[in-house]
Design a protein around this nucleic acid. Structure first.
Length: 417
RNA sequence: GUGGAUGUAGCUCAGUUGGUUAGAGCACCAGGUUGUGGCCCUGGGGGUCGGGGGUUCAAGUCCCCUCAUUCACCCCA
């Protein structure tokens, strides 16, 4: 095919049966969220660009991964790279801080980042996420994490291990930041090029480096710098999660790339996935809504979950429940009656389809065999007497019934044969 | 943005040191059964060999460019 007709780089066509699986995941996620009290909020897939600039000036998402464009009215717009900023905007714009707090919301939809595609990384991907506004309590962090774990578990992954850390608050982080810079400055010559750059842009990210791991080992741990409140918050959260039977692993080097986080950050990996690929990740971002013109104090926690990654993680141990479909076949000349009968069955709630290819009966049965279900045969002597044939392909059992009795017979297929 | 690997039918892949009209399996369609699937047999459709340029009497094969896929980085879900 001509190159200009190919799908854009890093995007995918989702075909059956994968598309059905995706629907299943969406259903599970939204259902879980609802049981936790998190209701769906839909925001536009594009926003005015400044909304996303709040994600952090130094992050790659904002710096060079944006899908931005100017519309005909001269407005600067950006395809959303993540959900949190958009939800924060919606929370503020709709005055949701006047609702009884906390406000529990979730979202589900496509995200766009112009990065180079690789394993489990796409330019358009789907994220499910949840956001909790209004509570500073560690219980809030816990609930959000428990929801994420519940979804992951529903999908068939046993015993998720939560990788957890706290990156402190405006009280205690500056001191840690200084200590970290000092430590790395003393070893400046041994650092990789990226890290030398990171010293100035985002020192916390030094801990993310996969090259300078040896240097990192002896780097100062933020836990030693936590203020009283941050320390209690972290301790309480850990306790809450373990009380709920969740496994927590403290990750001193987990910092995450978005600037808006404070205190809690977390993520979860899956063994089937390559190195640094998280199924979901999130944290607390008490300052974000304020920067979008929200009230002075608007605490919030949330996570985002990569649906394509979830899909690939569950691939082996998750089967789609097959809906049994009815194939209405016809003898030559009975195309129209078979279409009518199929429609009749559909109106009674069955999944039914008829042949549209003017095939021979033999070919229709072959076709029906591909989806292994029930075949209703229309035409011939039986039709003259107001009857149709019914055949179960599984075991080859066949019988003839009055048209009026057909739907009753089909409702209990397991008793036949 | 950096580095590596790979592009031949819908899918998985053969294709010799460059040499006639590019093959197989699976899948698809039809027939073998004037009204019955799966197995088997026979036949059929389907390819600008990712695209463009170059070398050559001759390119799927060699060279260059480009596009795409993929893996590792960067970063993130």
């Amino acid at each position: 095919m001509c190159a200009e007709f190919q799908k854009p780089r890093g995007t995918q066509d989702v075909l059956p049966p994968v598309s059905q699986k995706m629907e299943q995941i969406r259903h599970i996620a939204l259902d879980c969220a609802q049981r936790f009290g998190y209701l769906l909020v839909e925001t536009p897939v594009f926003e005015q660009t400044p909304v996303f600039l709040r994600v952090g000036e130094s992050t790659d998402i904002v710096q060079h991964e944006r899908y931005s464009f100017t519309d005909n009215g001269g407005v600067d717009l950006t395809l959303r790279p993540e959900g949190t900023a958009a939800i924060a905007r919606a929370y503020v714009e709709n005055g949701m801080y006047n609702q009884p707090q906390p406000v529990r919301m979730c979202y589900y939809g496509p995200m766009f980042r112009r990065e180079r595609p690789s394993a489990m990384r796409y330019r358009q991907h789907t994220q499910f996420g949840a956001e909790l506004y209004g509570s500073v309590q560690p219980e809030a962090d816990a609930e959000v994490i428990l929801l994420a774990c519940a979804v992951v578990e529903q999908i068939g992954l046993a015993d998720p291990v939560i990788r957890l850390n706290s990156i402190g608050c405006s009280e205690c982080r500056p001191a840690y930041r200084e200590a970290l810079i000092l430590y790395y400055q003393q070893r400046h010559d041994q650092l990789c090029q990226d890290c030398q750059k990171r010293m100035n842009t985002n020192p916390l990210r030094l801990l993310d480096c996969k090259i300078d791991v040896a240097i990192r080992e002896r780097a100062p741990d933020i836990a030693a710098f936590w203020c009283e409140d941050c320390a209690t918050h972290y301790r309480d959260l850990t306790q809450l999660l373990t009380s709920c039977g969740r496994q927590v692993s403290r990750e001193p080097f987990l910092v995450r790339g978005l600037d808006y986080y404070n205190r809690t950050v977390f993520e979860i990996n899956h063994p089937s996935m390559g190195s640094q690929v998280a199924l979901f990740g999130g944290g607390r971002y008490d300052g974000l809504a304020t920067t979008l013109d929200g009230p002075k104090s608007t605490p919030a926690v949330g996570f985002g979950m990569g649906i394509e990654r979830i899909l690939s993680a569950m691939e082996e141990n998750f089967d789609l429940p097959l809906m049994s479909r009815i194939y209405v076949a016809h003898l030559p000349g009975f195309e129209a009656p078979s279409l009518v009968l199929a429609e009749e069955l559909r109106r009674k709630g069955f999944a039914a389809e008829s042949d549209l290819m003017n095939r021979s009966l033999k070919a229709q049965l072959r076709d029906a065999g591909r989806q292994s279900g029930v075949v209703v045969i229309v035409g011939g002597r039986e039709w003259e007497q107001g009857e149709v044939g019914v055949k179960w392909l599984e075991n080859g059992v066949q019988m003839t019934v009055k048209r009026e009795e057909l739907s009753d017979l089909l409702r209990q297929p397991e008793e036949k044969g």
